[in-house]
Design a protein around this nucleic acid. Sequence first.
DNA 1: TACGGTCACCGGA
DNA 2: ATCCGGTGACCGT
Length: 266
Amino acid sequence: MIDSYFLRTGSTSKKRKLDDRETISEHRDSQTAGCMDDISNSGELSSRLSCFDNISSKQSLEWKKISAENLDLDYVQLFTKTEADSLFQQAERMIKYNANSKVFLHGKWHNIPRKQTAYGDTGLRYTFSGATVSAQPWSNAGFLKDICDLISTLTGHKFNFVLVNRYKDGIDHMGEHRDDETDLETGSAIASISLGQARDFIFRHADARGRSAKRKIEPVKLELSHGSLLMMNHPTNVYWFHSLPVRKRAFLPRINLTFRKMVVKS
DNA sequence: TACGGTCACCGGA
DNA sequence: ATCCGGTGACCGT
C-alpha cells in the first residue's frame, strides 16, 4: 500500500512547479505515506498526552521563519510521524462534521469542496460567505483542547476556537481568501495544524491580484506536512490571501485544524 | 509531434 | 465573496 502510494504520487514531480527558495518540502512523502496504514488501537486520552511530553518547550524544535512584505509566518514540524498518525486517527474517530455546508458567492449557493466543523468555548461561532460555523463543546473532542493548550503554551498565544477542515483527497480544496477580521481578535495569530496528506499552501498579496494589479509581488508557496504547525502572525492576514489549491496527484485525506482567538459576540 | 493533463490566473453579480 | 468555469501556459508523452 505504501509502495502504491509512492508510485501514484510521484515524489519528485510535485516539487517541479514550486520554487525551492520559497518551498518547504522535506519529509513530504515519508511523513504522509504511512498515516493511513497505521490502524493502531486507541489508547486512553491520557496516554495520548504523553506524546506531548517531549515538546513542552520551544527549545527542541526547529522553527523556520518565513518573511515577505507584511507577511510573517513560523513553521515547525511539531509532531513526529508516530504522534501525528495517532492524532490523525483520533481526529477520524472523534470529529463530527457538519452536513450540507454551503457558501453564497456571486449570487449562487455552493456546496463547499471539503467537510467542515468547529470546536471551542461555549457560544463562539465563525461566519464567512453566508455560512456560520458554531463551535461544538471541547468535551466532544478532548484531544483538540489538549492540542490547543499545547500550542498556547508553546507560542504564548491564547486560543478559544478551532475550525476543522477535512479534504478527502487532492480534489477537495479551498479557494483564495483572507480570514474575516471582524470575527478575530485584532492582531491575534492563527495556528494551523496539518494532519495526513501533505498539501501545497499558497499566499498571494492583495495588491498583486487581478489583471490590473498595482504591483508585482511573488506568491509565497509552502508545503504543509503531516504533523506540522504553521503560525500565521499579524499582519499577514490583512495583506495576504491564502488558498489550498487542487492537487490531482494527492490521493489521501488531509485534516487541518486552525486555532483562533475569536471575539466574543453577544 | 500534437495532444491531453495539470495548473495559475482571472472574473462573474 | 473559502464558489465555479473559462483561458492559456507549460510539460510529458
